[in-house]
Design a binder for these strands. Structure first.
Lengths: 148, 148
DNA sequence: CTCGGTGCAAATGCTTTGCAATGTC
DNA sequence: GACATTGCAAAGCATTTGCACCGAG
């Protein structure tokens, strides 16, 4: 059901929408594939720059938009101003638990979340697309340091 | 269980944390109480300014932080850079369904969501604080206009 | 050859900060 | 009186944009 390879999938997506196939776009996709966990746009840009890439910040932002549009990566806002990204191509749909003290983010998968979301969307007559659930709390480590 | 009046509650909160009781803070709380639905910081600032208030933007931001900390208002990021706020004092805990085309935001209450979030947090050994669920879809109106 | 894409730097927009003046405790 | 809070303007930060050049189709 999902294409076997994100590069292949991205190529199809670009063609289907009459976007151009450029080396920069694939260089960025390659870098994204090698990120694990969450990353932000500037972090990705700097990592690529340090690795000798010549792509510009603007192109990184532009390409992350395209990758988000086609569902290869997901964009999150964890109550911050900056956007965080994550590859979701070929992975199971999951949600996040965030520590309000140290910012650590953990993931969990539970099919029920999507069911709730779908029910709510239908009840309000929306065509469901996707849902984001963030759970905020304080992790075990931060709770044992007992200040504030 | 909740205090009867947000002003009273805010006063207690400020005292408890050795923050000062200033007229600006209560002027802002008053304005927040008269907002219905979601609003952003600048919108609130401008509304107050037009109504003749002398409070500064900085104080509006500062006070919204305090109101968020003590749970009188909630701060959301609906995938945008700006933060949106809403009074939640004395209201039922609810979630949001957002139209990806026109940006309309509707609310829904589902007790299962919070129960579920609590379980998930505990399973990962987090002290649960709160949860945010955003559901993205396309509203009835936007679906009937059938272009992209 | 035509436009969409790129790199750069400057601009934008939301939010925060520095600092001197003010007002709460 | 001490020090948190205020107002103002300037700074900050993530992101977007304008524009001249480049290269994919």
């Amino acid at each position: 059901m999902t294409a076997p390879d994100p590069k292949e999938y991205f190529t199809q997506y670009l063609k289907r929408n009459n976007y151009r196939i450029t080396p920069e776009r694939f260089e960025i996709l390659e870098a994204v594939i090698h990120c694990d966990g969450h990353f932000d746009a500037d972090e990705l840009f700097l990592r690529m720059k340090n690795a000798g890439s010549k792509v510009s910040r603007a192109t990184v932002y532009n390409t992350l938009d395209k990758l988000t549009e086609c569902g290869i990566v997901a964009r999150y806002r964890f109550g911050e101003r900056l956007a965080r990204y994550e590859i979701v191509f070929g992975t199971e749909h999951h949600h996040h638990v965030i520590c309000r003290k140290c910012g650590k983010i953990e993931e969990f998968v539970d099919k029920r979340v999507e069911r709730f979301a779908r029910d709510a969307a239908e009840a309000l007559n929306y065509g469901f697309e996707h849902t984001v659930m963030h759970i905020y709390g304080v992790c075990r480590v931060c709770r044992t340091r007992k200040e504030t």
